[in-house]
């Protein structure tokens, strides 16, 4: 028996919105520790990794580890039937063919349940080493979204350069070129969540497809902060912490000049 209850059901809506344009089908693994999902996009250029700890749920029970093969677009359709203030409960048997979703309005006046058919999904699970990155940038997620959106109008590839002073995002295209530099905040600059913080061992410059960075920014509503982890010649990690429950991280392979 698997049962997971989230008072803030809208969180689940936001999570699926953040994944479904990149990944169509995915296995969500449920264990005593919580929910995890790892899935690559169809071209195997990027990967999305979701982690929701059991302690972040209002109620969590998982007697036996199970894998839920989900069509994310279909799950998104069902979650659209939930109100934004609804409590959402997920339920499945030990060898499930379906996932039950129950939505309860805050005053308990409306209770609905839906069953989503599960699928057998063959996926390749990639082993991602726990690595120390040369640069870690923490910045407001809305700022990152704006930069990616603005630069995508000009070209396809973004050069991200991180130094101690700041992070530079550069693009060039047929119409011209552009740069946006965000500088490290000084300690006195306002709210923690509005700050740009850079931890750097050595400067890093990497090239990335803006199209994919744009997919990742669908996670912006999940939190005020995004973290970018970079080292030379390896995939970037774009991490959105989800307050009190876990995180969603995207890995994107760089473009390399050959």
């Amino acid at each position: 028996m698997f049962e997971a209850r989230l008072t803030e059901g809208s969180l689940l809506k936001k999570i699926i919105e953040a994944i479904k344009d990149l990944v169509q089908e995915a296995n969500v693994d449920c264990s005593e520790e919580g929910l995890t999902m790892q899935a690559m996009d169809a071209s195997h250029v990027s990967l999305c990794s979701l982690n929701m700890r059991h302690g972040g749920f209002d109620h969590y029970r998982c007697d036996r580890s199970i894998s839920l093969g989900l069509n994310l677009a279909n799950l998104g359709k069902i979650l659209k039937c939930a109100g934004n203030d609804d409590v959402v409960t997920l339920k499945a048997e030990d060898e499930p063919d379906t996932l039950t979703l129950m939505f309860e309005s805050p005053n308990q006046e409306r209770i609905s349940d839906f069953e989503l058919k599960l699928m057998d999904i063959e996926t390749e699970h990639l082993g991602i080493p726990n690595e120390e990155y040369k640069c870690t940038i923490s910045m407001p997620s809305g700022e990152f979204q704006r930069i990616v959106r603005d630069l995508a109008v000009i070209g396809e590839t973004c050069i991200i350069t991180c130094t101690k002073e700041g992070v530079k995002f550069s693009v060039s295209g047929d119409l011209g070129n552009g740069n946006v530099t965000v500088r490290q905040s000084s300690a006195a600059d306002g709210d923690e969540k509005d700050q740009v913080k850079i931890q750097m061992e050595e400067p890093v410059t990497l090239n990335f497809a803006l199209r994919y960075l744009g997919f990742f920014t669908k996670a912006t509503p999940l939190g005020s902060t995004v973290k970018l982890h970079m080292s030379p010649d390896v995939p970037i990690v774009v991490e959105y912490p989800i307050d009190g429950i876990g995180s969603i991280s995207y890995f994107l392979a760089p473009k390399i000049d050959e």
């Binding site: 690559m40 071209s43 195997h44 250029v45 990027s46 990967l47 390749e124 699970h125 990639l126 082993g127 991602i128 080493p129 590839t157 090239n207 497809a209 390896v234 995939p235 890995f251 392979a253 760089p254 473009k255 390399i256 000049d257 050959e258």
Partner: peptide, 14 residues
């Protein structure tokens, strides 16, 4: 020219 790498060339299947 710039070439888009795939993730499989960085991470191995587990």
């Amino acid at each position: 020219a710039m070439q888009q790498k795939r993730l499989d060339s960085f991470f191995k299947p587990s």
